[in-house]
Design a protein around this nucleic acid. Structure first.
Lengths: 199, 199, 199, 199
DNA sequence: ACGTAAGCGAGACGGTACGTCGCGTCTTACC
DNA sequence: GGTAAGACGCGACGTACCGTCTCGCTTACGT
């Protein structure tokens, strides 16, 4: 083929795109747990065996899909000066990407979703949230009988995760920037008071 | 599918017990997602068709199992005077019950677990945590541009949930009372600063 | 189950019978090579997965089918006095059993059939034909430069096999006894003159 | 699928040759039934799609291969005076050609071979053998209750076929001329005694 | 204590999805 | 124009679970 790497066969791109779209649609419709490969391929109007030429199974499709998403999202992150009490750009970008496929995320993080996806998403969130954290508290001072720092991290991560879930389930009642600011505030306040810092 | 009509047939009780135990064991071993009815019945040394005499499927078994658990747990809750900055007894009891089947909960709430279970567990947790909340802040005062109260609830609920997950994943490094107190403190601090209350 | 061995579950016998009949019919219709498991199960009105509970594949079904056939055929062979120039009862019985499923054998031994089946059938035929041979020539006398005895056997076996194929392809134009007698005569004559015996 | 239009493209001849050789080798190794187009092309180091440019499928390749073989074999047959009890030259030539690809024929005529090939080969053999027959018995005299002449033909054809199979399976323990003479003798003797001819 | 109704073991069965394999067709680029 | 590379639709394969069912044996319960 001697093609330039990265510029794939048009048919391949077309097929993968059809499969991903069908995947999103059907997941929203019937949930990830109940989703079958046949569901996807029938919606995509692609032969079932063709699916297996591109993905190992629905989990692999999910994986590749979110990797592509995050790749895009990270490309555009850019570098910016950050202010202590202002949401990190990474977090805002994450929220914006989620918003584009809001109903997909809502389902995937809900009762018909996938716990592994939720876990990975939480980890992703954790990175963004901890980056806020680090911006805000470059030097950490701990009290002697404070709770373990990892507990605090988990506490904050899940809290942020919960806020995103709330945002998705309420059909994004506020812009990403607003949510990011609230989140930032929450984190700041929680940590300050937990660590008894002089903010 | 037998209803609890007073005293059941010995064989029935025996079978259900065997199935539940096998269910717990196998879930811990291979995760709830991958768990099959055959896994359970083989471990329980019970015929597969007998399983369906008692449960609709593995989800039904899970459901009945946790219902029985919570029934027990709630019986013993008791009523107590509560102090503002002290953990609620309900929360402590919940943690104690979780601790008894810690590895089961760890798996069920993790990547190999069940999102529906996690959701229901979160709801259960929410009740206990909101009761702390209500004890602490009987009268709510909101600032004009504060985040929605439901966001705050979700934030706190997920944070508490995350703390419990941390506790389980770390193999319960501290007693339930300690965790409950930390949690209580977190909630108190977060809410106070979020709502800009004067303690 | 504690059932008497050999007396199998009625359903099992029914299913196997349906599958075998469908197998015969479809083989005659479209040949063994082109035959699929789905062909068989659709005709038998049995679920495809049920097929695999009884047979490994179509080859296994064939195998079991002919084993059952031969079992029956051998049960009834009986013992008889045999005359040198008269067909063996074993051979006649074989032909009678073939005749019952003549079109099946015609297909299986033809261009759309299975070479392995043909081989096994040839071996079966060999036994019967060699038993004729042994009846006729209890003491063998060989000339010094005669062809190898195994060549003679193969020669005779294939000749008998060819006669049966002819019989099947001509739609059995004569009764089994007649064919068996001709075969016997052929064999006798061939061997006598090949070995230069004083028959 | 290229026709033999005089001198073909070198690449075409090269590709066909590679495919035929690979076909022979792989057939001997794993049998014709189990042979796939991919087996052939991988061995031939030719792209799979190229295979379909030349042949419809493995059956077509087989067909073309044997046609080319027989074309060659018949070119060199020549015409000779024949003696009643001496093997026909056609038969000897056939055996010589078989001998060149003995293991291929051994497989193709065995349990892992192709019944259609066997049938066609039998027909080819029949021609050669009947030519012996006709040389030996130019005038046929039949007894009143003799078996049908077609039965006799089939009998003889298959017998000859069986002899060739024996020869192949024993790894050709004697030269073609020897086998041809034995065969000739068998046929002569069988027919004489069957028809009760006076020599 | 004992007869009987239930629970239970054994396992056939119809379904549905899985992931794999081989087929034959097609398009595009290279040589 | 022949070939390589390989995507694609198609359809059979054999496996794994599912949930339903029937049929006898056995066992705990109620009189």
């Amino acid at each position: 083929m001697q093609k330039l790497e990265g510029i794939e066969d048009l048919r391949v791109r077309r097929t993968r795109k059809l499969l991903q779209q069908a995947f999103i649609e059907r997941t929203v419709e019937k949930g990830f747990v109940a989703l079958t490969v046949r569901d996807i391929t029938e919606r995509a109007m692609v032969n079932r065996s063709t699916f297996y030429r591109h993905y190992l199974d629905k989990y692999d499709l999910l994986e590749q899909y979110i990797n592509e998403m995050y790749e895009l999202s990270e490309d555009q992150e850019g570098i910016l000066e950050l202010h202590p009490r202002e949401a990190s750009l990474g977090l805002i970008n994450l929220l914006k990407y989620i918003q584009q496929e809001a109903s997909f995320y809502r389902v995937m993080l809900g009762a018909q979703g996938d716990p592994l996806f939720a876990q990975r998403f939480r980890q992703k969130t954790e990175e963004r949230i901890l980056s806020c954290f680090n911006q805000i508290f470059p030097e950490r001072v701990f009290e002697p009988d404070a709770p373990p720092i990892n507990l605090l991290f988990n506490f904050i991560t899940y809290a942020g995760f919960g806020a995103i879930v709330w945002w998705l389930e309420q059909e994004q009642p506020c812009p990403p920037e607003q949510l990011a600011n609230w989140l930032n505030q929450f984190i700041y306040d929680s940590v300050v008071s937990s660590l008894k810092l002089n903010g």
